[in-house]
Design a protein around this nucleic acid. Structure first.
Length: 626
RNA sequence: GGCCCGCUAGCUCAGUUGGAUAGAGCAACUGCCCUCUAAGCAGUAGGUCUCAGGUUCGAAUCCUGAGCGGGUCACCA
């Protein structure tokens, strides 16, 4: 419809004023609620061509459109705004198409393939609230891309090696007494996380002892540098060059790095890299526990992956590429032998790619892994990394380097960056135990949903299993919607003391509307009402719903190209608001005109269809009763 | 300090190439269950869109500067 109008407006200006204007200048938009009409054309851009007042220009163009576009049946002019009314027949016809299209809103196959990476956890602790946002976001974006006709591979890279997991391993060896998930009844990832925390606690104790003895001028260390530094530090504090707080922080950190525990963890990492059998076996065992735990969490979350990558496999990648890059002159070498990428042209600091001793850094393996993925999936149109915005700079550098290396596909790489979730008192700190655990949060929100549902739900006649199922549908739906409705780029505050709101603009609000529709349809079937209708007289609430339904394909497209499930959330919410208004002001089953009744049933059915479809793209289920 | 991002109602957020009187939800107040599910609907109140300039028919939106908040600039991952 928009296209027809654009074309006809250009035509009108050509005929009326003998001027050619760019079709870009014609921007039909939805008419605001307080005015009558469906589409509005702003005529200000045309007054240069018409050389007449905005009002008169709008009037003349309006008359032309009324005569020459059959779907337009009326128009009105307010200042420079030309409001056009589209005929009900046009909307009814559009509705027929929606009604008969089983995969309404979804684009035909595009032939493109995308890879979406999300989650990518460390294996030394369980998933937390930040992962929930990450995973729900990545999963929803993957679904939305599929709905846009693309083939999608969902993937994660599991950070299964490194100093962090060694810490858990050391602590378990020292204090674990052979504890296992089976023996303790603790979920595997939580058990490993418990020892990570244990390690930190013990290390802090040891560091504190060391630090205290320094304060008393007892230096057990054989390293005279530390003593010297410390004494200088004290002097600086006296001269107020640094604050006591900064001094404490700095030397506590130094003490931490000089603890026996820290040395042991480093040593274990070294042994792991050598392939020491004992260490590798312990590593496999404890990672195994973590994976069992993650599986349960992912299952509760209702997400999955098509392809897994492990850092223990990929951390070696990239070295040869960097060396080749050096030969080709893309990178340069410093006198100490380290290899760097010059990014001054891009106004960024130079980036280290290989240390002087030839070992790699994070960036090195990211380069290698990206190349690996494009080798494995030829024709990949895009690679989407769902990673927090603290790594914005990292990805900017990564994509720039890939491009410098001559990989044209680097343009298809996209960092799906999202804002951090903060608690009312600030950032979550795993060391301070303020992290909101994913399993705990999901459990408690389902409990909330349970008590709310028992209070006001329509659960009579449901089996115990069906009820439990409903509680988790509502609870998790609420949680997912809560995390997805905010623009990914923005940070958000989460207060664990207040449970997530399940009224208003929420998942359950939408689920409730869906359940009402299903109940309505069931009752209609029971009463033997038909859903087929001839042409009917419509009211503006009905047309309003059709207009919104008609937007669904555009919304999917937009949500896909902007990688934003939030756009879809807002759309579904608006649709439900409109439907609730319709539902509460227009009779459906009580309607005496059976033709109208049938039409309204079918309208409700299609609203339900779109709600279900949209919610499923978000990874949210909808219940038939609640 | 350099670079990046954010700032819209008391709170949480919409507002996509600049368009009409800036919109929702929560919280507050007022109405509505005659069983089409009140987890709902209708209404009231709440705003110098952080501030100051600029661009033009027209700015929350674009430009410049300032303020506040966050991130990053690691031979950490």
């Amino acid at each position: 419809m928009e296209n027809i109008i654009i074309q006809k407006v250009v035509e009108a200006i050509q005929l009326l004023y003998n001027e050619n204007i760019e079709s870009k200048l014609v921007q039909p938009q939805k008419t605001k609620k307080e005015f009558t009409g469906d589409l509005t054309v702003v005529v200000f851009p045309f007054i240069k061509a018409s050389k007449k007042s905005p009002e008169q220009t709008a009037q003349e163009i309006g008359e032309y459109l009324l005569k020459n576009v059959e779907q337009i049946e009326d128009f009105n002019v307010v200042k420079g705004f030309l409001n056009l009314s589209i005929s009900a027949d046009y909307w009814l016809e559009a509705f027929q198409k929606i009604n008969t299209d089983a995969s309404f809103g979804f684009a035909p196959t595009s032939g493109k393939t995308y890879m979406v990476e999300y989650s990518s956890p460390n294996t030394n602790k369980p998933l937390h609230l930040g992962h929930l946002r990450n995973v729900f976001l990545g999963y929803a974006v993957a679904n939305i891309l599929k709905a846009n006709g693309h083939e999608v591979f969902k993937t994660q890279i599991i950070n299964d090696r490194g100093i962090h997991i060694c810490k858990s391993m050391i602590a378990w060896q020292k204090f674990g007494n052979g504890e296992t998930p089976q023996s303790s009844g603790i979920k595997g990832d939580h058990l490993v996380g418990k020892y990570y925390v244990e390690f930190d606690k013990e290390q802090k104790k040891e560091a504190q002892k060391k630090f205290d003895s320094w304060k008393n001028n007892h230096f057990s260390t054989t390293n005279p540098e530390i003593i010297e530094q410390y004494k200088e530090g004290i002097q600086d504090v006296k001269e107020e060059k640094i604050s006591q707080e900064d001094f404490d922080k700095k030397f506590f950190e130094i003490a931490m790095n000089r603890t026996e525990l820290h040395r042991e963890a480093r040593e274990m990492l070294r042994k792991w890299e050598e392939g020491d059998e004992k260490v590798v076996n312990l590593w496999k065992k404890m990672n195994g526990w973590v994976y069992e735990g993650f599986d349960v969490t992912y299952k509760t979350m209702g997400v999955d992956f098509d392809e897994l990558y492990y850092e223990s496999d990929t951390y070696i990648l990239g070295k040869d590429v960097v060396e080749k890059g050096l030969e080709k002159g893309v990178f340069y070498q410093k006198p100490d032998g380290s290899i760097w990428c010059d990014l001054s042209a891009e106004k960024m600091d130079d980036k280290l790619l290989l240390r002087a001793d030839g070992t790699s850094v994070y960036m090195t393996q990211d380069i290698g892994t990206a190349i690996e993925r494009y080798k494995k999936h030829q024709n990949l149109s895009g690679l989407i990394y769902t990673v927090g915005n603290e790594q914005n700079h990292h990805f900017k550098v990564l994509f720039t380097i890939l491009k410098k290396l001559g990989y044209a596909w680097a343009d298809g790489c996209y960092h799906l960056s999202y804002g951090m979730i903060e608690l009312p008192e600030g950032k979550m700190k795993s060391r301070e135990g303020t992290v909101v655990d994913a399993d705990d949060l999901m459990y408690s929100i389902v409990q909330d949903a349970k008590s709310m549902t028992q209070e006001r739900g329509h659960i009579e006649g449901m089996s115990e299993g069906e009820r439990e199922n409903l509680y988790s549908t509502i609870g998790l739906g609420g949680l997912k919607y809560f995390l997805l409705k905010v623009d990914p780029k923005k940070g958000m505050v989460f207060d664990p003391k207040e449970s997530i709101d399940l009224n208003g603009n929420t998942g359950p609000f939408i689920q409730y509307a869906y359940a009402r529709i299903q109940s309505l349809l069931a009752k209609a079937t029971q009463l033997g009402y038909s859903k087929s209708f001839a042409t009917v007289e419509t009211n503006d609430k009905e047309i309003g719903l059709i207009k919104l339904l008609n937007d669904y394909p555009v919304v999917i497209n937009e949500a896909g190209s902007l990688y934003s499930p939030a756009i879809l959330c807002n759309y579904i919410f608006a649709l439900v608001q409109e439907f609730n208004n319709f539902y509460q002001t227009v009779d459906i089953l009580r309607e005496e005109d059976k033709n109208k009744l049938a039409f309204r049933l079918q309208l409700a059915e299609n609203v339900g269809k779109v709600i279900k479809s949209g919610m499923s793209l978000l990874g949210i289920n909808v219940p038939n009763k609640m």
